[in-house]
Design a protein around this nucleic acid. Structure first.
Lengths: 199, 199
DNA sequence: CCTTTTAATTAACACGGTGTTGAATGTATC
DNA sequence: GATACATTCAACACCGTGTTAATTAAAAGG
């Protein structure tokens, strides 16, 4: 059977990924080299090339894993129930679950989304937010019929959500996921009161 | 006089910067090498090192120029007048001027803020937005007394603004700067009506 | 226990980019 | 023409890359 060998290979891959993340945290993705990864993971440099073509393919697989799991959790959200919870100022469990997932994967996410990470990943996360969540919400609003306007509205909200997550990731895990979900609700309430404040 | 020589040096530097931007657009910052820059700019590789320590220093100076000019234009904004204009649904000239500047420097900004750019630049731009503009606006609101909350509110809004700009930069200059400023106002109005829509 | 299969190691290779050097060449100023 | 500076050029040692071939290690099945 080949399954055992596959498991061995997977173990090595997980080992490589772990030290890869540590290296990005320490020096940034740009300055990570295959040589450094091999040294840090105590494997031969040749072994790395047995699993990945280069550091970019490694980064790609890492991102895929995170995005797939995130997408699965976002799919749990039902727009109507989410709006109801927001209106009633209650915490919506699938919403909290997303922050929990982000918290559990804080290290790799911080490394990839951070200052020395991969700029293309931010856009990929925005796309996940957008496709599953906002597209259904915004499109219902009468003012969002204008194609042009909706595009920028979309960019505004997805960027805002990601921005809050990035801020949370940087200040480490001082706040638990539930706290974070609450803050997100508060922000939405604050925003909707802005007009009242201005007048 | 050394001034002429300085001008010569500046001319070469501008020449290098120009082709550097073109290279980022074509291959992304990570894949840009000093050798490629020299070849593309038709200068000797040694000449590059006469002006910059490496490609990172070149990127740094480019970013500094853009951020300084942006900061100067943002400083022109008077919070009270801006809020008044927003309330009266009028275009606020200093606001339009910012979008004009961004439009004029679309190529370098797109290259640096884009998928293959420098992830740290996004944060630098958010800081410029935040320090000059939002800090004064948000801090006036009673709900923003909580330090923790204000931090995330800050992240939410600066990220949202930058997100709209990034979206604009990608879809090239189909929309003029004034159009863009209008759309931004529309978004703020839309946001403030969200609560009404939800209820 | 021995054979087969696959994973991992090792050393060597050519290649290409880096950053620095010293000497030479151009070029504008005084 | 002498001076000061920008630029060129060739050469240097260094380092990371991606690939190769030969070797060792480890687990699986007969």
């Amino acid at each position: 059977m080949a399954s055992i060998h596959e498991e061995m290979g997977q173990k090595t891959k997980a080992h490589i990924q772990h030290h890869f993340i540590a290296l990005i945290e320490a020096e940034g993705f740009a300055h990570v080299s295959v040589k450094k990864i091999a040294e840090r993971a105590s494997i031969n440099r040749g072994t790395f090339y047995l699993h990945y073509a280069d550091k970019y393919e490694l980064m790609d697989q890492l991102q895929r894993q995170l995005l797939e799991e995130l997408q699965a959790r976002i799919s749990e959200i039902l727009p109507k129930e989410a709006l109801l919870a927001l209106h009633q100022q209650q915490l919506y469990p699938p919403f909290v679950a997303i922050f929990q997932f982000i918290g559990e994967n804080a290290r790799p996410l911080r490394a990839i989304l951070g200052d020395q990470g991969d700029p293309s990943f931010a856009k990929k996360m925005k796309r996940v937010f957008g496709e599953v969540l906002l597209a259904r919400l915004i499109s219902q609003h009468p003012a969002a019929q204008d194609e042009e306007f909706r595009k920028y509205m979309h960019a505004f909200l997805t960027s805002a959500i990601l921005g809050v997550i990035q801020e949370w990731l940087e200040n480490c895990e001082e706040q638990p996921a539930e706290e974070m979900a609450k803050i997100h609700f508060q922000i939405l309430n604050f925003i909707s009161q802005l007009r009242t404040f201005i007048q």
